[in-house]
Design a protein around this nucleic acid. Sequence first.
DNA 1: GCGCTTTGTGAAATCGTTTTCTTAAGTTTT
DNA 2: AAAACTTAAGAAAACGATTTCACAAAGCGC
Lengths: 340, 340
Amino acid sequence: MDTEDGGAKLIDVARLANCSPATVSRVLNGNPTVNETVRERVARAARDLGYVPNGSARALRSTRTRLVGAIIPTLDHAIYATMVDGLQARLAEKNVSLIINTSTYDIDLEYEQARLLVERGAESIVLVGSTHRSETLAMLEQKRIGYVYTYTSRATEAGAAVGFDNEKAGRTAARYLLDLGHTRLGMIAGITQDNDRAAGRRDGFLNELERSGIDLASVPVVEGAYRLDDGKTGMKRVMEDRRRPTAVFCGSDILAAGAIKYCHGAGIAVPGEVSIVGFDNLEIAELTSPELTTLEVPARDMGRIAADYILASPSQRLHLRQRELAIRLVVRESTAVAPR
Amino acid sequence: MDTEDGGAKLIDVARLANCSPATVSRVLNGNPTVNETVRERVARAARDLGYVPNGSARALRSTRTRLVGAIIPTLDHAIYATMVDGLQARLAEKNVSLIINTSTYDIDLEYEQARLLVERGAESIVLVGSTHRSETLAMLEQKRIGYVYTYTSRATEAGAAVGFDNEKAGRTAARYLLDLGHTRLGMIAGITQDNDRAAGRRDGFLNELERSGIDLASVPVVEGAYRLDDGKTGMKRVMEDRRRPTAVFCGSDILAAGAIKYCHGAGIAVPGEVSIVGFDNLEIAELTSPELTTLEVPARDMGRIAADYILASPSQRLHLRQRELAIRLVVRESTAVAPR
DNA sequence: GCGCTTTGTGAAATCGTTTTCTTAAGTTTT
DNA sequence: AAAACTTAAGAAAACGATTTCACAAAGCGC
């Protein structure tokens, strides 16, 4: 009896409290129509038995799982890990659990993971960016599961969004460097395939240059994964361009840190010979020498606000469907006026 | 019919495939006793209806949830985020989902989260370190839920462990610095309250010093959270000690990076005047100047191996109950022989 | 004090699967 | 060709909660 296999069930609580299962259920769910003395008897019985409700049974009958899913590219990049940290913390306050999946930037794998989340009964799903397989979104819509894009500010008909405008961010970087007098520029972008964020930043950057009369054919642009090494080799290629740039915009602080490391090794002065701008404002931006000028991404806030959207009632959601957060330029030491 | 509310159910598939629900279930679960032609009819019907099984119902009846929980201090520290990344990736290969919770180093909160995980039907739980409320462990044992400690190599009767020996790691750091001829040492430890890992590293470090005849009363030890700022202020305090050390061991690379930053500002040469050893071998260890000598923690491997343990059958588990991984000293530029 | 509402509780149906138990048909053995 | 097994598939119970509905008892107006 005390060493029961799985543990006590609701009906055991009912027996001990000398009432019906229905009443126990009411107490457990805070239904106010239960008499105070009964309520206490039930609470006591549940405590004494070490009763833990069976979530599956509860979910099956009530059609509420209090489960949310998130599919992010990787947890190995602080920008996503921090977002998830904020998301989880806010959801946990309301006893909502978070299932997380890493898709390694693979939208086919993302589809499989979304399917599994649907099967598990996730009530909302958090996605990164707006590049997804149409089957993924169709499935979520067919099952009436709400989803939220992060790292992008563009909501769609069916999906909310909390993030920022990547193109605008790219333009901001360009404008800043142009204003410093740079005319020969380059970029180390993230991998743009299936990645609207990386592509958006690049496009915004290049568009702004073009608007300022710069010939894009003379702007070296390379792509790299978000790893130090790719930053190094990317910088090497950019700096070996016929018209070596005096300013390089990197799609991530990791790439920028690698770029700075390359310059150290190659004896190129930063920012004396070349200015470098990063993206994300990770902790590492303070650790490079020179410290990194970068654009700050509100990762934790995105997670928190995505959680707020998910926790909101359908009527409140309408107001929260699209939320654009500000991107802030953080000027440190890796940028300077163009050398004459 | 096509715009059904929740979507098709198993019985709808059965009807369309002209067979019984039992048979559909068998097909879905790969039961080999089903005739090939029937199997295909069912698979086709399921596909045509866009059928997605109801995980709650399935879990309720079969008592298998394929759900695992993890409770870690925070995702904001790469060492945990990377472990979770490895854990999730390996579990996902076997269609097991991971619910993650961050306890912010609070073992009371950890208990609440564990309870919720039990309620949700988690079949195993991954914990960090071996400092937990006894109620937490008692609950898991009573409910027959397996748990795995990470970041420690000490398994208990009921719980497996995959990690490393923190004391040994602390001793390794001490030995390395002693062998370089340092006799005046200090330490910036992590917060040791409710944290066996931070405490273990400190104790191992100090024990080894003591064994080598160093008077521990002369060794300044401060504690700090894993933040750059705490590394800076910690280093300040350690270096202002009456007997300023020539070598400082930090409980984390973040603290060490902060320590280096402090030295920059204070005009103290690293490693000329003071050697600094970090812990974790995060990406940032390559970004400080000088680059950081540190102890490498196999974060991703811990996650993967914890997953392997969880996925193993009960008989296999016996062999995997305790797994000590190696800690490797990575010598870079922040350490040197003691100044004479 | 007689109907009428309100309040608190219980009985039983139900959620969507899996599993156990049967059974019909086909195969093999003798 | 009958008895004894196999094999494939269906009928119905079961998992553990919530919810609907029904029904006493108590409170109220007149």
